[in-house]
């Protein structure tokens, strides 16, 4: 809370569009808020609200430090950030899945078994090293994680890695690059998160906003939800 303003951290990009649609459905001010605009702070003094437009991976950080009271972020980003925040509501939109994928030929040669696949090749390229490491560690499979920042599907094509861990929504990118999904990790949707201190001491201010967002989310999601 800055002064009397409740601060909400919103992600840039596609997830941000879903978030703004949800704000509208929840009856919260959203006019003129554009996650792609140059303007990064939107203030609505009458409603006592302020939005910060952040990179999606930074939303948990703003909330954890208390620079924002609430935030909207994908579960994928949240798990990867490992931030100490409260996870309040599954907002339902922004559906995607974490998967392990491998080149089709290699997968077929390995008899479609993850253990065989990893027998001689253990380099995993990903944007999500924490998620990837946890997945392989839990199964006792030693791998070498290679952190990349985008276009993960390029790594096996270029011989940089043998496997990838990435998020997919339709799976089209994988198919186009002759990759196949070999193991699911978990599925993800957008979440409403709260700073642990603000949630407790500003409870009276936060509750109505949280309830409105929860209600909007359960009443048919935020428009372009690709939830199955």
């Amino acid at each position: 809370m800055v002064g009397d303003l409740l601060t909400l951290a919103l992600p840039k990009g596609k997830l941000g569009e879903g978030a703004i649609q949800l704000l509208r459905q929840a009856g919260l001010p959203a006019s003129g808020v554009d996650p792609e605009a140059r303007q990064l702070v939107f203030t609505f003094p009458a409603a006592g609200a302020r939005y910060l437009i952040c990179r999606p991976t930074d939303v948990p950080t703003y909330v954890e430090h208390g620079a924002a009271d609430l935030g909207i972020v994908g579960k994928d980003t949240l798990v990867e950030a490992g931030a100490d925040v409260f996870e309040l509501v599954d907002l339902g939109f922004g559906y995607c899945r974490f998967v392990v994928a491998a080149p089709r030929q290699r997968w077929e040669a390995a008899g479609q078994a993850l253990e065989n696949l990893l027998a001689g090749s253990r380099r995993v390229a990903t944007k999500f090293p924490r998620v990837a490491a946890a997945f392989f560690q839990e199964r006792g499979l030693p791998v070498e994680i290679i952190k990349l920042h985008g276009n993960i599907e390029l790594a096996p094509l270029a011989g940089l890695a043998d496997l990838i861990v990435d998020i997919v929504s339709t799976g089209r990118t994988l198919t186009e690059n002759d990759l196949v999904e070999v193991a699911p990790i978990f599925s993800s949707t957008a979440r409403l998160i709260a700073n642990r201190v603000s949630y407790r001491i500003n409870s009276q201010r936060l509750r109505p906003v949280i309830d409105a967002l929860r209600q909007a989310a359960t009443q048919g999601g935020a428009g372009f939800a690709t939830n199955p």
Binding site: M1, V2, G66, R196, V197, S198
Partner: peptide, 11 residues
């Protein structure tokens, strides 16, 4: 119990 101060993200 935990003690909280506005603006500080942790107890």
């Amino acid at each position: 119990f935990e003690g909280y101060v506005p603006g500080l993200g942790m107890p």
